[in-house]
Write a protein that binds this DNA or RNA. Structure first.
Lengths: 243, 243
DNA sequence: TCTGTGTTATGTCATATGTTAATGCATCAA
DNA sequence: TTGATGCATTAACATATGACATAACACAGA
């Protein structure tokens, strides 16, 4: 029923740093099970201290903070291979919530084994820190995007980055990738209003750069979109560990 | 000449998790020296792979990214106790630059000893991951601030958080803390134009909330400022490790 | 003393974006 | 069928913020 780490559908992909058979064996024991969550399920709650940590195996979700004003800041989109709950693992509690937007399958790890991992398997501890540093990097990019770009560029940027993440996972076909979110989610991620997001999406559509309908994003002109986003079309994704 | 970890001026402060004598001894060996940098020195360069990692001991600086457009996104302000160069440590290269804005003293660690730290001292490896998670948390907050608040609230928020960080380090006296940055730095951190930042500072000054002159911030009415910032005046700082 | 440079300060005007409201269009359940 | 709900779409209007221009001030160097 549950996926064996030896047959992990993600690990063979070239974005992930390879693992020795012996290391894989350790992961098999670290993984305590698998969890399936419906769309809409809250996987982690801000302020809570989840006893379990996850790696997304299939499906998509999003991380978000709820602000005093009741508004919502989407921190990032959660895709397969993303590690969920590191903050709950090392600090007392989560600083953001995580929610599934499609049905999701998650590899489950026990929080109480985390310390054992640091003690017995420094390679994996190193990988965890790597992932934390990677997350910090991505958030820094998000900050720069929200802080310094206009609405059009922000959306173009988000589209390119989501497309590339999906492509690295083998989810892209002819520039089409699944994007099962609402316009409100994108707006909350980029610090735009829903209405302005909608108008800007129309702009991108009419300009022939990208169209996003029915939960599916079509990148019609990658180079054009990169131009709008201020990104280099030829930059390559960074190899990273998979826990 | 160089500060012995046993006499670290920062560690006794209550924000930092205490360390056993034996652990301190390990830190003494991990620290390879001390570095003094003038104001304006670039400590880490985006894209570079620094052979050394630092912990800020005295002085202040800032982390920033340089964007394609030539603009600058200030990621965070660097204060004593901040760890510098984690990304260079675990990933190939830094994703942002770090610059001193005052003369700074830094504790120096060798990057090539980082792996030994993970292997021989899992407690410290754990702490490093903690710091990475903390940084991720702070960046998430920054993102929410820049994404969802107006100029006035952003600046109030930044002031409160800087004040509280300084207070935890014992640098605050009667609501006055050192803030040796330019208005342009704050503007670049909050995604505002220099002109608008300046006008908003005047607004805060005239409103009796805070004044920032000559590199010194005076919080005149903490509760008022918290109100503008949408922060709870009674929240307490999180205890954290010091590397 | 003068001149240049960097920073803070202020006013005027333009505009990107937010706010509010209304409509259409699916889907779902009674 | 009907009504309710959630989401995308569009228009009309309001405003926070940016862009530009200019001045004042401090400081360093010749």
């Amino acid at each position: 029923m549950t996926t064996d780490c030896l047959n992990c559908p993600l690990r063979p992909r070239s974005v992930f740093a390879p693992m020795q058979a012996q290391e894989l064996d350790f992961m098999r024991h670290f993984k305590t099970g698998e969890l399936k969550g419906d769309a809409g399920t809250t996987l982690m709650l801000e302020g809570a201290n989840s006893p379990q940590l996850y790696t997304a195996l299939t499906g998509m979700g999003l991380r978000y903070k709820t602000l005093k004003s009741g508004e919502r800041q989407v921190i990032n989109f959660v895709l397969p291979s993303d590690f969920i709950g590191l903050q709950a693992g090392v600090m007392k509690e989560m600083q953001h919530s995580v929610e599934a937007t499609t049905p999701m399958t998650l590899c489950v790890f026990d929080r109480k084994n985390l310390w054992r991992l640091f003690r017995d398997c420094p390679e994996r501890a190193y990988d965890l820190t790597w992932l934390a540093a990677l997350e910090e990097h991505l958030l820094g990019e998000n900050l720069a995007i929200v802080g310094h770009m206009n609405g059009l560029s922000r959306i173009a940027c988000a589209f390119i980055r989501l497309h590339d993440r999906c492509a690295a996972l083998g989810l892209a076909h002819d520039g089409r990738v699944p994007l099962p979110y609402r316009q409100q989610d994108l707006a909350d991620a980029l610090g735009l209003s829903l209405v302005h997001t909608n108008k800007t999406l129309r702009h991108l559509r009419r300009g022939g750069a990208a169209r996003w309908v029915n939960g599916r994003l079509e990148v019609l002109d990658y180079d054009l979109l990169c131009g709008i986003a201020g990104l280099d079309p030829s930059r390559s994704p960074m190899k990273r560990p998979l826990i």
